[in-house]
Amino acid sequence: MRPFNYQRPANAEEAVAMVDPMGVAGQGGAFLAGGTTIIDLMKLHVVTPPSLTDLGPVGLDEIEEGNDGTLHVGARVTMAKAAEHPAFRDRAPVLSEALWKAASAQLRNVATLGGNVLQRTRCPYFRDNVSPCNKRDPGSGCAAIGGINRLLAVLGTSEQCIANYAGDWANALILFDATVETMSGDGGREIPFADLHVLPEDHPERETVLGDDELITGYRLKIPGWARRSLYVKARDRDSYAFALASAAVALDMDGDTVREARIGLGGVATVPWRAREAEEFLSGQSLTEETAMRAGEIAFDGAQPYEHNAFKVPLGRNAVAKGLLDAASLDLAGEAQQ
């Protein structure tokens, strides 16, 4: 790890005033929340921030509900706490399931929701600090495209980068039209969550729209009543503590067997948290059968760009969507409500 300047602000305002500008590829100063991504990458020298601004003392660690039912979720709420919060667990299980199926209990106890959506890719060529990687070292090339790319993305890729977004919760959060609240030297702003991440295109080093000193302070979202019919399918090689090879976050508003509204998020297959809007539109008004569920999955992967070792993610992702839809449709919510 490179030496860095450690800063400990008392509150969020101080934090944004204190942080060194981040610059490209995360090589500027950085905020330290749970640290489970950045300390890992600093040990590898993949990121070498000259300073860390520790958010430990800044609060922002509550989930609160406003009078209109809007949830305000602090950025420093841990994954563990959020996974068990009744607002998620009971009203939008997908938001809980995507958390407890991620990482390990130890990591979830410190990793925060603010950091979680900014989790960096697990692309091995990004992490090895040696291979050409346009994300780590802009303009150097992409070793992943012709390499061992089993884990990497098939959606949202570019000729510069196929690094997958490795997180889970963001793929669920994206279903609920959440708003990201930020603070920076210029004040603060609200960003639709779906606009937070940017596709790699020609600049994979840039992953979000956040400014150099911009801090995520929390999220606002309204969970519709029907979101109780939601779940997270996470397909992975082993049964726990593994990244998704494909995941599907699904929430369904059903009228009998007919889909009033479907929302589908994808993980493990895309360069950014991914909303499968065309598949959602296709399902709207359809009766949900295995056939329509599979068709929705196919639509979700229209335009997917597979590579040598990850072509299976296209049928896998399709099937994960179908499974998610069918499982969600068959949830017995009346039975749960009685518990």
Binding site: R122, P124, Y125, D128, V130, S131, G146, G147, I148, R150, L151, D237, R238, D239, S240, Y241, A242, F243
Partner: peptide, 25 residues
């Protein structure tokens, strides 16, 4: 152990991607 044929590098040289069974398995 995933070896990149181009370089001979072990691509999954960590125990997050070289998977061994966990308790849940």
């Amino acid at each position: 152990t995933e070896v990149d044929p181009r370089t001979g590098a072990v691509v999954n040289d960590n125990i997050s991607e070289y998977l061994v069974p966990v308790n849940a398995d």
